[in-house]
Design a protein around this nucleic acid. Structure first.
Length: 268
DNA sequence: AATAGAAGCAACCGCTGCCGA
DNA sequence: ATCGGCAGCGGTTGCTTCTAT
């Protein structure tokens, strides 16, 4: 007896989400919270599988999402984290509030990999290319998960924050490939320590004016204490959902305007 | 202006691990 | 101890947009 598929794929919609679908999903989750993703599409009136809804919510609709391109500081911190954690994107993303694992993974694959290669570093091992070629020519697509896992275990709990990991590492020895990227980053940042980098990062994420940051957290939105829904609360919630969907549209328009402005500025 | 190729990104697929029965 | 259901994760795909010719 095979395992039941996560959803009945017949008749389900796939591909890009429409504004209307976004609106339905967001309204449903903000009004009811998330108990079981499998039930969400049925209850929300969507012709999507639960998995698809979950992904859409996590990667695009979540109220606490930070929008806009990753800064160079964030990028540098991703490189540091990757040298320690390997391709564990969700772990890396957990150090960047408002950023998704998918976003970081895509950014890594499209930008950072190239940047490291240009700097002569292997994006998998974080070692200089030549050195890596000598060590293992065959393993170049396989991330060094075993070593990163070992390393992580030696760091204690999986849930260690960057700061605690760094604290432990500054006191102890550093592996050679960590040293490569860390040295490089220190050089790029004019000798900033990990701690300084972390502070910079925090500052940057707090002060960035270019990000979408509602004063309303997911926890707040899903808090059962809010569930005693008076009609006033429902109205407010609905208005907020409408505003959020509008803001998504505005965000797109803004991006287009910025692009046009950039084009105009550079065409003269 | 048209076209091909490259790059970027959203979404999907399939596997894994956790949890409860 | 085993099994099924589920969420979460990482790899991959394919569509859209950009850039070079």
């Amino acid at each position: 007896m095979g395992r039941q598929p996560c959803c009945d794929k017949v008749g389900l919609k796939r591909g890009p989400w429409t504004i209307e679908e976004d609106h339905k999903l967001m309204s449903f989750i903000l009004n009811n919270g998330i108990q079981c993703w499998r039930m969400v599409p049925k209850l929300a009136g969507l012709l999507r599988c639960g998995k698809s809804c979950r992904l859409r919510w996590i990667n695009y609709l979540r109220p606490d999402l930070k929008r806009g391109a990753l800064s160079e500081v964030e990028e540098n911190q991703i490189i540091q984290l990757h040298s320690r954690l390997g391709n564990r994107w969700s772990k890396i993303a957990s150090h960047f509030p408002g950023r998704t694992d998918n976003e970081i993974k895509n950014h890594w694959n499209t930008r950072i990999k190239k940047r490291l290669k240009q700097l002569g570093l292997d994006p998998v091992t974080h070692k200089p290319m030549e050195e890596k070629d000598e060590v293992s020519e065959k393993n170049d697509t396989v991330p060094d998960l075993a070593s990163s896992k070992q390393q992580e275990e030696s760091n204690g709990e999986r849930g260690d924050t960057l700061d605690t990991v760094q604290e432990k590492q500054t006191g102890g020895e550093m592996t050679s490939h960590e040293a490569s990227t860390d040295d490089l980053l220190n050089e790029m940042l004019g000798g900033s320590s990990d701690l300084e980098l972390g502070l910079l990062m925090n500052q940057q994420t707090k002060t960035s004016s270019n990000t979408y940051s509602p004063s309303f957290s997911l926890e707040d939105s899903l808090n059962p204490s809010m569930g005693e829904s008076s009609s006033l609360q429902d109205d407010c919630l609905q208005q907020w959902v409408d505003c959020t969907v509008d803001s998504l549209l505005l965000w797109d328009s803004l991006n287009h305007l910025e692009q046009e402005l950039f084009f105009l500025e550079n065409s003269h």
